[in-house]
Design a protein around this nucleic acid. Structure first.
Lengths: 327, 327
DNA sequence: TTGTGATGATTAAACGATTAATCAAGGATT
DNA sequence: AATCCTTGATTAATCGTTTAATCATCACAA
């Protein structure tokens, strides 16, 4: 591998001059600058990351800790983070929390060992990750006191509820699959808040058994708001098996805009998190902390948007009547 | 940050002794070893990655280049690779090919700049990625001459076909959505090979329009083998909308065992790639190349397995009769 | 007593880049 | 003509770790 030393030797100048010429820092004549850059290009010179890191104390690498890399929302995240990090000259080293708190702390240690300049952390719920000796940006929920950036899950829930109200639905099922997940709780609470006083609604958490959609429909429920597209997929297909048509008999809204949401028929209406914006702010926050910026960006919350597709429609007249007439 | 120098100073020994004590390489008395390790632990000493990398010429970091990080099969891959890399003491730096050949080459350059010891490459189809100055392990298809590890897509296709034959189906649709994808072509060819002479079948590539399943069913088709779970999801739900029941009227098999395959009803039968094994071999291959191993592992192909779920069932008698009696 | 070996530690150099300090030489100023 | 400033380059030190080479001690054998 070519080094500054080699360029210096071949050109008969000192390494300091080569370094200055390439970084444009010291005082070097234009002639020498040209000579050096030309020779560097010829040799295919690439500055040694290790050498630079050793001297400057910066590796230019950020660590990313996620509780579970196989979760379907994370690819989008990772992509956004990679793009933003790259734009600021950072690379991203991934680590896997392996679903446990111990694994999460171990991931942090590994990243520190590798000399990362900072850590982007998506904490496993209910854990208090150890504080690393480098800046950390936590992507979490707004109620988490340590968050640097958060998606506005409550607002997303509201959005879903408002959309379904606008379509005339007045009896609604709110469906989650993990009653301990703060994210799901926020989403459900947002829905409930918007629905309060506007419609009848009930909350269910699917554990062992899935709610009987036909029963619910018989009692007048015309819409199901779920906390994820996977759950929405389950509802849509389960409904179909029970002979309910979607959206004619049942409207469904999911969360996260997963790839499956456009593959399923009907396509899924969903609440989409602005992962690009989340990534942008997380990286900006972390970069500011690393550079010891005077006024770093404050923790912020990013709103979600509604994407209406084919799984939602106007409330059926029949169902509403049925509800009114049934005991 | 504590360094060997600091430990040495506090203990009144030389840095070389500290280094030797910590790595167990030179000649150091047991007493001193104990002293040094104890003090190192006290101070929370972590060896500087930059210093070590500079001296040894190894960063302990592998680069991962993927054509599109948002593709649903990649989380699984990334997870497997991270686990295997970690087991061998490597970290993984992600790079994004951004879907273009230029982006792919740029990703390689970025990784080189960051000093990776080797690169794991999942090439964008039809591209010839530039050769980096470090070892590279290519995860591709068996017909790709540069592959280090490949999933056996043909065999996977065969598996699907054999399963569907065993269930009595004799008129089958093979469905892809990208006729230029070598992976999809391999899968379809595998299916066709197993079906040849055993059953009637036709291949269709969904472009603008999706095949009319009701029509096909009317002509006797009782099973659809697809090249991906996303496509299978489309088939299952589209069929349901056409009034066909799955698996009673139509059996469906997908590929890749995506998370959605257990969320949809009926759950999807699918061909599952052994991503853990693929990752293991890719890392082993790369590690051997980096360590300049004498007899490195040869390029190898990893078989897939069949996972039968609820989207497949015996061929319907009615449909078969229908086909026999129809003109 | 002298030489030999083993043991345990130190010295010093090296990896590659950066940067403060220094120096030489030429041009401009008084 | 003596001084000062500017320009363009070099020297040397430093970051933290590793490692070959060296050295000092002491034990033991001849």
């Amino acid at each position: 591998m070519p080094s500054q030393k080699q360029i210096a030797r071949e050109l008969g100048v000192s390494v300091a001059t080569v370094s200055n010429a390439l970084t444009g820092k010291g005082r070097v004549s234009q002639d020498v600058v040209d000579l050096v850059t030309e020779r560097a290009a010829q040799l295919g010179y690439t500055p040694s990351a290790a050498g630079r890191a050793l001297k400057t104390g910066r590796s230019g690498i950020l660590g990313l800790v996620m509780p579970d890399i196989t979760h379907p929302v994370f690819p989008d995240f990772a992509q956004g983070l990679e793009i933003e990090a790259d734009a600021r000259g950072y690379g991203i080293l991934i680590a896997n929390g392996r679903g446990t708190e111990a694994g999460q702390d171990n991931a942090i240690r590994q990243l520190i060992k590798r000399g990362v300049d900072g850590i982007i952390m998506i904490p496993r719920r209910g854990t208090r990750p150890q504080v690393p000796p480098v800046p950390m940006a936590t992507i979490s929920i707004a109620s988490d006191p340590r968050f640097a950036v958060a998606a506005n899950h409550r607002q997303g829930g509201k959005l879903a509820a408002q959309a379904i109200l606008q379509l005339g639905h007045r009896s609604i099922l709110l469906l989650g699959d993990d009653s301990h997940s703060p994210v799901q709780i926020d989403r459900i609470e947002g829905m409930a808040e918007a629905l309060e006083g506007q419609a009848e609604f009930q909350v269910q958490w699917t554990g062992d058994h899935f709610p009987d959609l036909a029963d619910l429909h018989a009692t007048g429920v015309t819409a199901v708001l779920t906390v994820s597209d996977l759950l929405a997929l389950r509802v849509v297909t389960e409904a179909s098996q029970s002979g309910l048509r979607c959206p004619d008999d049942l409207s469904v809204i999911g969360f996260d805009n997963l790839p499956l949401s456009t593959a399923v028929r009907p396509t899924l209406s969903t609440i989409v998190p602005d992962t690009a914006e989340l990534a942008k702010r997380a990286i900006a926050y972390l970069d500011a902390a690393i550079r010891d910026d005077q006024d770093p960006p404050a923790p912020s919350v990013v709103d979600m948007t509604l994407r209406l597709r084919d799984s939602t429609g106007p409330a059926p007249q029949t169902a509403t009547q049925h509800r009114r007439t049934s005991p």
